[in-house]
């Protein structure tokens, strides 16, 4: 079975290009619950995306990663029904209310649990998979050894994020807007994806943006896992996501092509990593936490 490469387009017109580059799944956000996506679609656009992806033999996944307040639940249920009717192939979620409502609609098999930081060991992952979910996304802050261990031990599908800037913080607060008010600036910050932070004693450029779901901050490095793809595959992982928030479609297509090539030619992984490290210095290409164990204590 071909490995599943999951990416987010910037417009629906990108889908065919991404397919040609080697992507097999398209992930889109929806207007009803915007949450850190490259694209948000309404119901008609979702149907169009379904039509396009189906014609290309691709999966269509939806980002439903928001935290829902009590007053959102009715709308959530309506959206789940729409997603079921449209026939999407998967729904990313982090709020377990999605599971509760999806269960009532007999659609838990579509759910992909993506709680950012929570899935760091095989026993937790297995408990969630046992709920009848389609897949779980592993935390990005664990080592290659941990990823391999988890994937080898669980029964069911796990996804790893293999490339891109990693989500580092999500606040419900409008942190950028508030700061601009504090310094009496009218500089536009909402939905501005050109913004980044540099800590006063460090050098990393950490992207930050604010949207209706709050403020999102990303790592100062760009993860690249070319060299580890073979380890992932040998551990039984077949689902790989590329984060594309701070790329464009041409850059994304190149990344997809390179990962597809590496999947076919694992021995080329090191050369690709070194090439990215050399050619994209401003992106600060690293291996993230794959070989860096974070400490349990101060």
């Amino acid at each position: 079975m071909e490995e599943n490469i999951i990416v987010s387009p910037y417009t629906l017109a990108d889908i065919e290009k991404l397919y040609d580059a080697g992507a097999t799944s398209i992930l889109v956000g929806i207007d009803a619950f915007p949450f850190a996506s490259t694209i948000y679609v309404n119901h008609d656009e979702l149907k169009e995306a379904r039509k396009q992806t189906k014609a290309l033999g691709m999966n269509l996944y939806v980002n439903l990663n928001a935290f829902f307040m009590e007053h959102d639940i009715d709308v959530l249920v309506k959206e789940l029904k729409v997603l079921k009717d449209v026939g999407v192939d998967g729904i990313y979620f982090t709020d377990l209310a999605v599971y509760t409502e999806a269960k009532k609609l007999d659609m838990t098999d579509l759910l992909i649990y993506n709680p950012d930081t929570l899935l760091t060991n095989h026993l937790d992952v297995q408990e969630y998979l046992n709920l009848g979910l389609q897949m779980c996304t592993l935390a990005s802050e664990i080592t290659l050894e941990d990823v391999v261990s988890i994937a080898s031990k669980v029964t069911g599908r796990v996804e790893v994020i293999v490339h891109g800037r990693l989500s580092m913080m999500h606040s419900k607060r409008t942190l950028l807007t508030n700061y601009m008010r504090f310094i009496n600036s009218d500089h536009p910050v909402v939905d501005n994806k050109r913004l980044y932070l540099i800590e006063e004693k460090r050098d990393d450029h950490m992207p930050i943006f604010e949207d209706v779901s709050g403020t999102h901050m990303y790592t100062g490095f760009t993860l690249a896992s070319f060299e580890e793809m073979d380890d992932f595959v040998k551990a039984g992982i077949r689902d790989f996501r590329i984060e594309s928030m701070f790329s464009n479609v041409d850059e994304l297509c190149r990344i997809i092509k390179d990962y597809r090539y590496v999947l076919k030619h694992p021995e080329s992984g090191r050369a690709f990593y070194q090439e990215y490290e050399r050619n994209f210095v401003e992106q600060h290409i690293t291996k993230g936490f794959l070989y860096t164990k974070t400490g349990a204590k101060k």
Partner: peptide
Amino acid sequence: SGRCTMSNSMTLRDANRGG
């Protein structure tokens, strides 16, 4: 709460394991 890895990324201290 629990969804932040700033500490992990910037100091290698795991925020979700007491650091």
